[in-house]
């Protein structure tokens, strides 16, 4: 995987959000439609082609906590809003942002989390649970040791306390559990395929018309040193 190798060569500790998603997409994990823009005009052009509303996010491997750093502009509905947001994000004084990610705005109706962690004894382990800003507080997550069978993946969905959130919900269809199982199995496979992937954090993994899609993703690297 070139994305990984190049990032490691550059001595980076994480992949940027965009690179993380490109990497995950190669394993069949559905991600938001998005493109990197280096100037205002490009951002406006991409947004126009993608269709409104869009999200703009500061892009770069060092920008792991974009919400806290105020580097996100949500629900932009016009070209003017995109242009204004681009100026604001790139004009940030403390954190110079050179690139901006123009991203499809996925509203979604449920927020899940999925990821990979490494344990000294068990090796790569897949995590799945209730996502969004309350992940850490509610701690409603389930773990499985890679490799995961499809049954393991389905079992994880049964494991969380809030499992009913996967069913049909407020007029929204049930989450496609097979697609979700694909994602969890794939995350485990990445962990086994690449020692250099230390952690993966897909949060939120939003549900749009029953289909899970990675709205934010972070791949943490381990250069083996």
């Amino acid at each position: 995987m070139n994305i990984l190798e190049e990032a490691l060569k550059r001595g980076e500790k994480t992949l940027s959000e965009h690179d993380s998603k490109l990497f995950l997409a190669e394993y069949g994990i559905p991600v938001t439609k998005e493109q990197v823009a280096v100037d205002e005009d490009e951002a406006a052009k991409i947004a126009g082609e993608m269709g409104y509303p869009v999200v703009l996010k500061g892009s770069g491997s060092e920008l792991a906590h974009k919400t806290e750093m105020n580097l996100i502009a949500l629900d932009l509905r016009t070209e003017q809003e995109v242009r204004d947001a681009f100026k604001r994000l790139t004009g940030h004084s403390e954190t110079p942002v050179k690139e901006v990610l123009v991203q499809q705005m996925v509203k979604g109706d449920r927020e899940l989390v999925a990821g990979l962690t490494r344990d000294p004894q068990f090796g790569p382990c897949v995590m799945f649970g209730l996502g969004g800003i309350f992940t850490e507080v509610l701690e409603d997550v389930s773990f499985r040791v890679a490799p995961l069978s499809r049954w393991d993946a389905h079992d994880m969905m049964e494991d969380i306390r809030a499992k009913k959130i996967l069913n049909a919900f407020r007029g929204k269809p049930a989450v496609d559990r097979e697609k979700l199982a694909d994602i969890l199995v794939a995350i485990g496979k990445i962990g086994l395929d690449f020692d250099s992937v230390k952690e993966i954090d897909i949060n939120p993994l939003k549900v749009l018309d029953g289909m899970p899609v990675a709205v934010d993703a972070l791949v943490v690297l381990d250069d083996g040193k």
């Binding site: 344990d119 004894q121 068990f122 382990c125 389930s142 773990f143 499985r144 040791v145 995961l148 069978s149 393991d152 079992d155």
Partner: peptide
């Protein structure tokens, strides 16, 4: 994790 591994 140990419990998860047991279950698997």
């Amino acid at each position: 994790l140990l419990r998860a591994a047991f279950r698997q």
